[in-house]
Design a binder for these strands. Structure first.
Lengths: 234, 234
DNA sequence: GTAAATTCTTGTAAAATCGACACTAAATAA
DNA sequence: TTATTTAGTGTCGATTTTACAAGAATTTAC
């Protein structure tokens, strides 16, 4: 194999900010780092890109290895590459954020790395520049979710409108008008009403809905307006 | 220096899709590749990241080296990292797009690498996966410009509303209603009217405007609506 | 077993925004 | 002086958004 001479190679990793939603709060999945330096300190889930892998492959492999989950919504959002960010040696990190249904995860939990969920405002100190990664991932999540229906990925297959609203309110840390929210949501045509109600979280009970999958994929690019004045939140 | 053992290092480059606007059409600045393989074939402007540089530093250095331009609007938008994308050896590329005032460029042109401007639909074959990079950069440009006032970066300091409209029409390959466009634009409060008119491109002459720089920076995150039904164009 | 309480969902009306089209104004060319 | 071109403002109806009200389905309290 030919080589480009006189150039310095470097390690490249992926790190993934994994968001989950437990019905009340947004959470973040963290692990304790398994190797020196900073061993046992909390960290995002990451790993080095292998020779046969694309960055997306690597991010998916790491996610599956650590959580057992496949086919997760994941999006590359930024490269972190300050020369000194990893004190051991020059390492570039491609940051992803992933959205998973927290309950689906609990069943498939991989025990080996004992990951834990943290509330966003109870996050421990993280290694390297991971705090900054989380900050930008939150920002990116707010940005993207203001325009596109990605937050559905955090809910189970069947969910109620009040659940979805609680999720939006968690992401934007504010209250929305219930009446307008549900009407806007239904007018998108993304939801398919189910015959059953969820009777756990309220007296009256709210009907379950599913995503209209084909409609969802077709209209993923078009802009929603579930969040009034989204620029206020960036 | 400690090392992570058992991991494969790789080359990391930046490639930059440079957009310009000549008053009528959007153009792309390309160079002929200076090293084997594919020497002399057309290519985006790129270069390897050096040990002391962040990816942003590298992208700016390459841009200045090739065009003489500093302080250019530039945005990282995607990592390209398929294992076989560079046949010589594993190379990751962090893709940026840049927006420059084509006339300002012409004066500072660096002759060494004889770059050339190409119309988007008269683009030559490019090396590696650069055609795909350009495709995604165009898409990203349309996406971002539908929401945020980035296209101003392609115009000189003083410009007219019809010029700006021509630019938007070039990006989206469509006609907008002149009357609605200018009214929307003025209502953003981003523009400061100048006393002089541009008398070159029309009989009546259109007033020059400048960007209100502080207003521009403050409101960069808020969403515009200069492009009706933007989702149609993605 | 009835009334009160909770909360999900549909209604309504005012306000703001958007888009289609008309028209005026400024300058030049003939 | 008149015709021509084109920049920019006006108007109005349609649509969308927001704020606030009321109705409907349950469950709990007594």
């Amino acid at each position: 194999m030919q080589k480009y001479s006189g150039q310095k190679r470097m390690l490249v990793a992926t790190d993934c900010i994994i968001f989950g939603f437990d019905g009340w709060n947004i959470k973040l999945l963290l692990v304790q780092r398994g190797l020196e330096p900073e061993k046992h300190k909390w960290s995002l889930m990451g790993g080095f890109i292998q020779p046969s892998e694309s960055p997306d492959d690597a991010a998916n492999r790491v996610l599956e290895l650590r959580t057992g989950l496949k086919n997760v919504y994941m999006e590359q959002f930024q490269v972190f590459g300050q020369p000194g960010r990893d004190p051991v040696e020059r390492t570039l990190s491609i940051a992803y954020f992933a959205l998973i249904d927290i309950h689906q995860y609990e069943k498939q939990l991989s025990e080996e790395y004992h990951p834990e969920w943290f509330l966003l405002d109870e996050m421990p100190d993280l290694i390297f520049d991971h705090v900054e990664m989380v900050r930008l991932a939150k920002r990116q999540l707010r940005y993207k979710a203001a325009l596109h229906p990605i937050l559905f990925q955090l809910l189970p297959e069947k969910f109620t409108i009040p659940q979805l609203q609680a999720l939006y309110e968690g992401v934007y840390q504010t209250k929305f008008d219930d009446r307008n929210f549900s009407r806007k949501l239904l007018s998108t045509g993304l939801l398919v009403k189910q015959p059953e109600k969820d009777k756990l979280s309220s007296k009256k009970g709210a009907f379950y809905y599913k995503l209209d999958q084909s409609h969802y994929e077709e209209n993923f690019e078009s802009f929603l307006n579930l969040v009034p004045n989204p620029e206020k939140f960036f």
